[in-house]
């Protein structure tokens, strides 16, 4: 049972990290709390599922879903997030209104998805990647993949941010967007690219969640909630914090599900959120982001 809990915890941590990565990146780079990120990923996943049902090539289905998620993510960034943020001159007040606007979208998306796709539940039926035996327990290929992609997402951005010119620019924008704009950095383009990457990771998270569990209209809201809780607990904008909290929540969710029952998962997670914020108000690994 302990091995089962551990394996489930690790794969959950992988997916949680994928979902929270988008939230963390968007907040870390631009200071935008985009709550529609979960439904954006879910929209892409629904497109992929519909294309799979129509017996299209798997690669085409994945590409269509990814493209849709990125497009919707960038459009929301350009036409909802940035105008709302700038309408109040940025700052904390601007962020609060981005939260309301995107929270509104988050609640509106299920109705749109239901009307477009005419279904409430979707099963992702990707080709099997096999089942493997590790530590006396079995793990599916997609569970392994979620762990692998999460690790890659942790390592690759670190490399990009510290070793490349583009990464240095992003770090500059993260620390002070105003000064970056003064020295000629195209800040808006960086925000757009960031929104695209965030949407793509949310899509991958949604697809893996759908392959391991299943997708429903409310999944997007759940992804958003977990993405935000992880990001806030880890320290807003901190990739390291997000990974640490993803592992903690993966373990707590898995243990709760096995020991008490699935219905208590979200309650335990909220309790952890409150405890973390009471004892570490700026998160477990806070960043030094300038507002």
């Amino acid at each position: 049972m302990v091995y089962d809990i551990m394996i489930t915890a690790l794969s959950l941590a992988g997916i949680y990290f994928l979902i929270s990565f988008g939230v963390t990146l968007l907040y870390g780079v631009g200071g935008f709390p985009n709550l529609a990120i979960g439904p954006i990923g879910l929209t892409g996943a629904y497109v992929t599922c519909s294309a799979l049902r129509a017996n299209l090539n798997v690669g085409v289905c994945l590409f269509l879903g990814l493209g849709t998620a990125v497009l919707v993510g960038v459009l929301i960034q350009k036409f909802v997030v940035e105008p709302l943020f700038n309408s109040l001159g940025g700052g904390d007040r601007g962020r609060i209104f981005v939260i309301y606007g995107t929270f509104g979208l988050c609640l509106l998306f299920p109705a749109i998805l239901q009307n477009v796709f005419k279904t409430t539940m979707m099963n992702v039926r990707l080709p099997s990647l096999g089942i493997y035996k590790i530590l006396h327990t079995s793990i599916t290929g997609y569970q392994l993949l979620s762990i692998g992609i999460a690790l890659a997402l942790f390592v690759v951005p670190h490399f990009i941010f510290t070793r490349t010119k583009g990464g240095t620019k992003v770090r500059g924008v993260t620390q002070n967007a105003f000064l970056s704009r003064l020295i000629g950095v195209n800040v808006l383009r960086i925000y757009t690219v960031t929104a695209g990457i965030a949407a793509a990771t949310a899509y991958i998270g949604a697809i893996l969640w759908g392959e391991i569990f299943s997708l429903e209209l409310g999944s997007g809201t759940m992804f958003t909630l977990y993405g935000f809780m992880i990001s806030v607990m880890g320290g807003l904008g901190s990739i390291y914090g997000a990974l640490l909290v993803s592992i903690i929540l993966g373990l707590s969710t898995s243990a709760t599900s096995f020991l008490i029952g699935g219905v208590f998962e979200h309650i335990i997670t909220t309790l952890i959120l409150i405890l973390v914020l009471i004892f570490a108000p700026r998160g477990l690994i806070p960043t030094k982001r300038e507002v």
């Binding site: 907040y27 709390p33 904390d92 939260i99 909630l225 219905v263 959120l273 108000p281």
Partner: peptide, 22 residues
Amino acid sequence: RVRGHIQFATVNLAFIFVFRYF
């Protein structure tokens, strides 16, 4: 205790969504 509007808003969000599960 919580510093910042975003953190407090997240706590509110968590409660709003968890209330049903509760």
